[in-house]
Simulated assay, not measured.
Amino acid sequence: MNRNERHVVPSPNGGWDIRKPDSGRSSGHTDTQSEAINRAREIVHNTGGGEVVIHRPNGQIRDSDTIAPGNDPFPPKG
């Protein structure tokens, strides 16, 4: 199964990159993490939904967000 996901990662040159796994180049670059998260959500939503994986400045995964029409494996209890 090929998941549609983008990772928000720190850029070696400063700022934040939006990366698709196994891609040689970034899908976008922003100055702030929040701008990168918002842009990554737009990209994933426009490509059919999936996951946005957010990394800390040290590279560790901090959070992930399922974007509609993606299937959230852990939906909030209503």
Rank of each mutant, 00 (worst) to 15 (best):
V52C: 12
R62M: 08
P57M: 07
E35N: 14
I18G: 03
P12A: 06
G59P: 06
H55A: 11
V53K: 14
I18F: 05
D65S: 04
H7S: 11
G24Y: 02
V52E: 04
T66H: 02
V8Y: 10
P75C: 14
P21N: 09
G59Q: 09
G70V: 03
S26A: 09
P21M: 02
S27I: 01
G50Y: 10
S26Q: 07
I43F: 12
D72N: 12
V44Q: 11
Q33K: 15
A36D: 11
G70F: 05
T66R: 00
N4S: 12
N38Q: 13
N46Y: 09
K20S: 11
S26I: 03
R6F: 07
Q60W: 02
I67S: 03
E42Y: 14
Q60R: 13
A68I: 01
G50I: 08
T30C: 09
N38P: 03
E5V: 10
H45A: 15
R62S: 08
T30H: 13
E35V: 09
D17F: 08
N4Q: 13
G24N: 11
H7L: 11
I43K: 12
I43S: 04
K20D: 01
H55T: 07
P73M: 07
G59Y: 08
G14E: 01
G24Q: 10
H55I: 02
W16L: 02
N46T: 11
A40V: 09
S34M: 10
D72P: 00
V44P: 13
T32D: 15
R3Y: 12
G14Y: 00
E42R: 14
S27H: 07
R41N: 05
G49D: 06
R56V: 07
T66C: 03
A68G: 01
P21V: 04
R19K: 15
S27L: 10
R6K: 14
G48P: 08
S27Y: 05
E5A: 13
N58G: 11
A40W: 05
I67H: 03
G14I: 00
T47N: 15
S26W: 09
Q33Y: 07
S23F: 12
V44M: 14
Q33G: 10
I61C: 05
I37F: 12
E35F: 07
K20R: 11
R25K: 09
G28S: 04
F74D: 04
R25W: 06
G14V: 00
S26H: 08
R39H: 13
V9C: 01
D63Q: 12
R39P: 01
